[in-house]
Each structure stands twice: as C-alpha cells, then as structure tokens.
Design a protein around this nucleic acid. Sequence first.
DNA 1: TTAATATGCAGGCAATTACCTGCATGTCAA
DNA 2: TTGACATGCAGGTAATTGCCTGCATATTAA
Lengths: 110, 110
Amino acid sequence: MTTRPTDDADKVFKALADPTRRLLLDLLCKRNGQSLGELCEGLAMARQSATQHLGILEDANLISTVRRGREKLHFINPVPLHEVYERWVRKFETQRLTLLHDLKQELEGD
Amino acid sequence: MTTRPTDDADKVFKALADPTRRLLLDLLCKRNGQSLGELCEGLAMARQSATQHLGILEDANLISTVRRGREKLHFINPVPLHEVYERWVRKFETQRLTLLHDLKQELEGD
DNA sequence: TTAATATGCAGGCAATTACCTGCATGTCAA
DNA sequence: TTGACATGCAGGTAATTGCCTGCATATTAA
C-alpha cells in the first residue's frame, strides 16, 4: 500500500505544479463542463496525455466529471483551492508586513 | 533579459509542490531568519539536500538570503505568494458559487 | 596558525513525471 | 447492425526530481 498517508493539500499543490493542468483549469474557467475532446483542442498534446492530466486534477478533487453518453464532461471544483488558500496562503498573508520587516531589519544591519 | 511573469508563477507553483519546501516555509514562518544549519535540524535529510530545496525556494523568490559571517540566514518573501493568489487563485475564488452551480445543474439532469 | 564550524559544489542513482504509441471498449446515428 | 466517434487502458521512454556521498572553501575561536 502507500508508504505514508497522502494529505489532500499535497495532491492539490502537486496538481497545480504543472502548466498544462493550470491551463486545463483556465479552459474550464472560461467554459465549464467541457468534454475531453473539447479540452484537447486547446492543448497541443495527445488525447491520452490530457487524460492523465485530468486524472491528476480529479484525484486532487480540483475537478469533477460526469458521464453523458459517450462524452465525459469536466467541471471545476473550487473548494480545494479555497481550502489551500484559507489554511496555507493566508497564514503568510496575515504576516506579510511582519515578514518583510524582518528582512529589511537584517539588511539594515540589525 | 527579463523573465516572463508566467515563468515566475510556474517557479512558485513548482516550488510549493514539494512537502519539504512547504515545511521549510513553515519553519521560517515560526522563526524568520534561520540559518541553514538551524533549518536542517527540523528536516530529517542531509544538509546538502536541504540546500537544494532552499535554492529552489530562493530561485522562485519565495525566500531571500543574507550572509552573515559563515552563516547564511533565510527570510520569507511573501510577495510571490500574494501575487499567485491575486492573479490566479482569486479568479476561481470569485466564480466559486457559479462554478459549483454548474456541476449541481448537470448532476440534476440539466 | 590550527581546529572546529558553516556552507558550497559536483557527480551519481533510484523514483517519478510527462509525454508517446497501439489497441480495446463503449456509444450514437444511419 | 454497421461504421464513426469518444473515451479507457496498457506499456514504453526520455527528462526531471530528490536524495545521497565526497570533497572544497570560507569563517570563527583558541
């Protein structure tokens, strides 16, 4: 099985690390609910490669899929991004001025 | 030659993709301005490995370093994180309810 | 100066990643 | 049913990543 429990935040960060996957989220942001074929038109890589990227996004819970006939529709799930922001980015955001002050202080010779 | 903003964002996302590097930012958030040796105490890997991680964080401009004697002090730079949030996360944040609505609508049978 | 300390640099190696090709399965329309 | 379409699945590979060891350099303190 797994060597250690993979936390959700890690999956989200890793999913966002690839420019193709961020582009896929951008494409879905422009028009939500696109099929695999539609998304592939904006990509410049084989359909099978896009499938893998979409699988990673889905595993990170950043998108949800719905099968309709022979098509698979993709929808953004903004919740994980919101959680990453709330639990992780905000911590540094609230200390922004303090952190910048630390460096300035050091550069000025302590 | 100046680097394009997309490259900067890519560096930040890739830097944040590793749990060790996120831990390093956490450690610096608890106490800013730590040396390489001090940061290594909380890591469980060779010092040289930590150096590589810190190099990636510095290249992404997420930390800045100051040499003091034989020590190298590390400081968080919260600006890139703020920019990533502003230019990227916020786009999805503002459409949060709309995006969730799209999926709900589809699941209910259009 | 000498010894201990703090970091820098280079090369190697196993695991992962991101792409590909080839083929199979499932669905719709004529 | 048949043929076209949309997606699924299974390897294969080159590049990247994350970790290591070994050695070099620079600074401080005795």
